[in-house]
Computed example of a mutant assay.
Amino acid sequence: MTTTHSTTPRVALVTGGSGGIGKAVVERLAKDGFALGVHYAGNKAKADAVVEEITASGGQAIAIGGDVADEHAMEAAFDAVETAFGGIDVVVNAAGIMVLAPIAALDLDDLDRMHRTNIRGTFVVSQQAARRVRPGGAIINVSTSVTRTQLPTYGAYVASKAAVQGITLILARELRGKDITVNTVAPGPIATPLFLEGKDEATIANFAKATPLERLGEPEDVAESVAFLAGPARWVNGQVLYTNGGLA
């Protein structure tokens, strides 16, 4: 008896894939042989550069734009990936925005912007993923460890990311029988522009010291967790994986 192995690559769509954690995830999944849909919200040049990097190394990737909170744009994004590569196996929701301020002082327009991208965007993309991801696939959302550490000024951001975790836990159970896992990665302090913006050196140093490993995380640290959930972790489902260097 002979066994044949498919040479067709698995396919992943990564929202926010042109920078920060999303870019690291794209690069890590490319190393695992995935064909990639690299999503961007506004900076096509950055997404094109990531695609060029992957294809130059012998991989497969396309850039796709659109507002994650717009269901029509995301339907078109999923269509584009399926047309290019024949289907979708993994969806990573890495797109997100963060505005920090005390609850008493936060501009409500900023609250609405975070909720649109972080909650509605995750919901819209998850909805498409639930309809389209192939059996054996995975849906991976990105939250934050501040849902546990409860730092001041993070109230609105944590509210949006706690919703992401809630969506994850429900969707994992709604997809019973589909052979699709749904999990959330909750990073600690990661050295990305999103995290570093507006923080002085003393604040950044305090964040680094807060973990037992006494450093900030790197986007690649989070990408390793995503690759685990996207690949071998078939018995991990409906969970929040705190990727934070031991932060409480």
Rank of each mutant, 00 (worst) to 15 (best):
F85K: 01
G37R: 01
G246L: 08
E220M: 07
A94I: 08
S145E: 15
G86P: 06
A30C: 06
K31T: 15
L169K: 15
S57V: 01
F207Y: 14
T4N: 04
G217P: 11
I119F: 04
I97M: 02
A80S: 15
R28Q: 14
L36Y: 00
N237Q: 02
E27R: 02
L175E: 13
I180N: 07
N206E: 14
G96W: 04
A80M: 09
L171C: 06
A12F: 03
G22V: 02
A35P: 04
L108T: 15
L171G: 09
D179P: 04
R176K: 15
E201F: 07
D67F: 08
A63T: 05
V81T: 08
K178A: 15
A69M: 02
D48T: 13
N206W: 06
H39P: 07
Y157R: 07
A105I: 14
V182E: 03
Q165F: 00
L29C: 08
A248D: 06
Q128Y: 03
G59N: 08
G87L: 11
D70V: 03
A172T: 13
N43W: 00
A172Y: 05
I119R: 10
R215I: 13
A49I: 05
Q127M: 07
D67L: 06
V11N: 02
H5Q: 08
A163L: 09
A45C: 08
A233F: 14
V38T: 05
L169F: 12
D48H: 01
L151N: 08
P152H: 04
K209G: 15
A77V: 12
T192M: 00
P152E: 11
R10M: 04
T153D: 05
Y40C: 09
V142C: 00
A12N: 02
V25A: 01
D179F: 14
A101L: 11
P193L: 11
I97Y: 00
T55L: 04
A56I: 05
Y157G: 03
G42D: 12
N183K: 05
A208V: 11
I180W: 00
T144Y: 10
D107E: 15
A156F: 07
S145I: 14
L216D: 10
M114Q: 15
D107G: 12
G58V: 12
T144R: 00
S225M: 13
G121K: 01
I204C: 04
R134Y: 00
I119N: 07
A159D: 14
F195I: 10
R10E: 06
V14Q: 06
I170K: 11
T147R: 05
T184A: 14
P232S: 15
A202V: 13
I140M: 03
A84C: 11
T55G: 02
V26G: 07
A186H: 03
I170V: 13
G231N: 15
A56M: 01
A77N: 11
T8S: 12
L29M: 04
I170F: 00
N93P: 12
T15V: 02
A248H: 09
S6V: 11
L151K: 04
A230V: 14
G59S: 02
M74D: 03
K23N: 09
R113Q: 14
V81Y: 01
M114K: 10
A95D: 05
S6H: 06
T122F: 01
N118A: 09
P212F: 10
H72Y: 01
A162V: 14
G20R: 01
A210D: 12
